[in-house]
Amino acid sequence: MHRKKLLIVGGGNLCLQTLQILAPRNQFEFHVASRNIEQATRMCNLIRLAALQQNVTVEIHSHRLDLREACIGRNAETLLKIRPDIILNCASLQSWRVITQLPAERFAALDQAQLGPWLPMHLAPAYALMRAVKQSCPKSLVVNAAFPDAVNPILYKVGMAPDVGIGNIANLIPATRSAIAHLYGCLPTQVCAKLVGHHYFSHCVPRHGLPPQRLEPSFNLTYWIDGEERTGEHSAEAIFGCVAREFSRLGGVEGQYLTAMSAVTVLENLHAEHEVRVHGPGPQGLPGGYPVKVGMGKVLLDLPYGVTREEAIQVNEAGQRLDGIQLIRADGTAVFGEAQMQVMQRELNFAMAEMRVSDAAAWAEELGSKYLAYAGDTQHHSSHHTGVAAHAAGHRAFAC
């Protein structure tokens, strides 16, 4: 059986969890690329041996890939040797979850900045990867896991957008279907839901229910039961409140299982012979998250009837502003929200009003240094935090 080549970039926890699901199914020729070749090789051996427990022989290879500016040419050579059909980018200079390891009071203070101001940590390696992809394997389908709601539309502005993202809005769909089923007294499999919303919305709902609604809507929900549209019969407050109350789940490292499963849903169906309906952030370089169709090597929008592309973009741009990115200019420059950046200034002594794509690596270096100083300082306040600085530094090795 001919297997497509799947390359996963970034040998962190999301890479591992995705491989743990995919490997026993044995549908791909697997490749893992990381700056830490020893860790990547040991991960590949773990996956290979674990699959053999189920008597499955998995073909999996490790490669060195360093997503720094100076290594783009070398990375392009590596990609040319692999010739992947699909690339899953899991690389990040600092995982979103690192700040959750802070003492509760400091985490609560810093978390008010939302994810937007951390954009450099996700954009810099993705930008380096996409330049190597464009040089060596421009026909490869690229799936981005690193803040795709914002990274994908920024890279689109400079002609380097990944095809789609994973997680975020996709992670909210199972709980939304389950909540609707709970309210109607039916099975979740009888419910079909299409949800438009940014990372901010998908991050807020499982924790707090429906966020306060402002003048601009931050989501659009359409749902059906057994093929019959029932949108509006239950309020959004009831549905998303039910998500937070009845379907509260583990987060953090364990919670990435849900993100890994959303990645699997996309990866396994990108080259399907028919279109499969899923959800994903950043399709076609658009901001935020959307219902999409994947299959036959394509990613297409799958908006419900009556919701235009422009309306869906406006909803996501409203969420983008709540997440701390005021706008993305035509040249890819990100302009950050004042309120969110004030939190970064107060907590980390870090100020960044706007950022050009080409400056992402430099901003990431400064932000990483400021965070390590902040995290290290907490050792004076809490014995709980011993080793956090080292933990954060480890995540700056391109793994999420």
Rank of each mutant, 00 (worst) to 15 (best):
I166L: 12
P162R: 12
E228Q: 15
L172A: 01
F219G: 05
A161H: 00
H198T: 03
Y184R: 15
Y223D: 00
Q190R: 09
N171T: 11
R214W: 12
L215D: 14
T189W: 09
E228P: 08
G167Q: 08
Y200G: 08
Y223S: 01
P188C: 01
R177Q: 14
L215T: 11
Q213W: 05
H182K: 05
N171M: 11
T222F: 15
L183H: 12
M160W: 14
P162M: 11
C204A: 15
N171R: 00
S218W: 04
P211N: 02
D226F: 00
I166Q: 03
G167W: 07
D226G: 09
G185Y: 07
R214D: 07
Y200V: 04
L221W: 04
E228C: 08
G167F: 05
P188W: 10
A193N: 12
C204W: 13
G165N: 02
E228H: 12
I169M: 03
P162E: 10
S202R: 02
P211Q: 02
Y223V: 02
S218V: 14
I166A: 06
L187T: 15
R207P: 09
L221D: 02
N168D: 13
L221P: 06
I173G: 02
P211D: 01
L210A: 03
D163S: 14
G209L: 04
R177I: 08
H203R: 06
V196Y: 01
I169V: 15
G165E: 07
Q190H: 14
G227C: 09
M160I: 10
A179Q: 12
A179Y: 13
A170P: 06
Q213C: 00
R214V: 01
G227R: 04
R207L: 14
L221H: 08
D163Y: 11
Y223H: 06
I166F: 09
I180H: 06
P217R: 04
A193V: 08
N220Y: 15
A175C: 09
G165H: 04
P162Q: 07
V191P: 04
S202Q: 07
A193R: 03
T189D: 15
S218E: 13
N171I: 02
G209A: 05
A193M: 03
L210P: 04
S202C: 06
V164Y: 01
I166S: 09
L221K: 03
P217G: 09
V164M: 08
E228F: 07
R207N: 13
A179L: 10
I166N: 07
Y184I: 05
A161M: 05
A181W: 10
I173N: 01
V196C: 02
H199K: 12
G185T: 07
Y184A: 04
N168T: 02
N171D: 11
G159Q: 06
I166R: 05
G159L: 10
F219V: 04
M160N: 10
P162T: 09
Q190T: 06
G159P: 03
S202G: 06
R214Q: 13
G227T: 14
S202N: 12
G209T: 01
P206M: 03
Y200D: 08
I225C: 00
F219K: 09
G227N: 12
A193P: 09
K157V: 04
G197M: 01
C192W: 09
T176Q: 09
L195A: 02
D226Y: 05
I173H: 11
